[in-house]
């Protein structure tokens, strides 16, 4: 490959450069070593149309005052909708997470400033009265807060769940008796399972049935009414003779079999659902043809 060659000899060039440098009047005018220059240009390529700059024509957000000054409001009424806090919550109003101002009491809306609290903020409040001294907001500095009771008195209704001490004692003793009889005797011998319960036939699809015989001590009255005691529920499998293989977390073979069975069942169920005529729609709805 051909390369450009400098015909002059090295020593000649050096001599020439030294001579030229000597010609210069001072070091400031000495020739600077030439730097390679790169110029980048950028042309206008910004999209001016379409959605490039974001939609500017969204629907209005329906912001602004919903209640005017001295308009009657009740608790929960929205007074002002805004972005940011153009208006701050004053007396007897709250502010939502989107800065919506709403009323906390029933009264009359006031728009005001409170230079004692903040020189620039504008507040919205709800006054108790429409006219007169109590209608003015803000309330004078260090004046007691104006408030309304807004309550009425009724006789206290006796709660059925709360019993008199005597009734509660009877209930408690019955509960205790039921538990002691079923779980453990003071002698340390557990009561054998009554034969009636042991031979009872459990209908198919139901693990057990709730017994509600109030005279049996093991169904002692308790807070939620008559029901089976927890220890009875716990023995349901024992009575039925169900034996469960003890879980061993290292036994991955059994785990895989159980999992495979579940997956298969799920697939079968899905296939059955797909074959159904309604195809997942509720049967009460009619299929549009």
């Amino acid at each position: 490959m051909l390369q450009p060659r400098i015909s002059a000899r090295e020593s000649t060039l050096t001599t020439l450069a030294t001579a030229l440098n000597n010609l210069a009047l001072c070091s400031r005018h000495a020739p600077k070593p030439r730097q390679p220059q790169l110029i980048f240009t950028r042309h206008a390529s910004h999209a001016a149309q379409g959605r490039a700059n974001g939609p500017k024509d969204s629907a209005g957000r329906r912001l602004g005052a919903k209640k005017t000054a001295s308009e009657y409001v009740i608790p929960g009424n929205i007074i002002f909708k805004q972005r940011g806090t153009k208006w701050f919550p004053g007396e007897n109003v709250g502010i939502g997470k989107d800065h919506t101002i709403y009323s906390l009491i029933h009264g009359y809306v006031r728009y005001y400033r409170n230079p004692a609290v903040h020189p620039k903020r504008r507040y919205i409040g709800v006054a108790l009265e429409r006219e007169g001294q109590a209608s003015r907001l803000p309330t004078p500095f260090n004046a007691p807060t104006r408030r309304r009771l807004g309550m009425y008195a009724t006789p206290i209704k006796e709660n059925e769940n709360i019993l008199s001490p005597e009734a509660q004692a009877i209930k408690d003793s019955a509960y205790l008796r039921g538990h002691i009889a079923g779980s453990s005797q003071p002698g340390g011998k557990s009561v054998p399972v009554p034969p009636q319960a042991a031979t009872q036939k459990v209908p198919k699809g139901k693990l057990f049935t709730l017994q509600t015989n109030p005279f049996d001590p093991k169904y002692a009255p308790r807070a939620g009414g008559y029901g089976m005691a927890n220890y009875e529920i716990g023995r349901a499998a024992e009575r039925k003779g169900v034996s469960v293989k003890e879980f061993d977390r290292k036994d991955r073979w059994t785990a895989w079999r159980v999992r495979a069975k579940k997956v298969k069942e799920k697939m079968v169920a899905r296939a059955a659902r797909a074959n159904r005529k309604t195809k997942g729609r509720k049967s009460s709805k009619k299929v549009a043809l």
Partner: peptide, 9 residues
């Protein structure tokens, strides 16, 4: 023996 309840506005 009395209970106070809120008056509904």
């Amino acid at each position: 023996e009395l209970e106070l309840k809120r008056v509904k506005v």
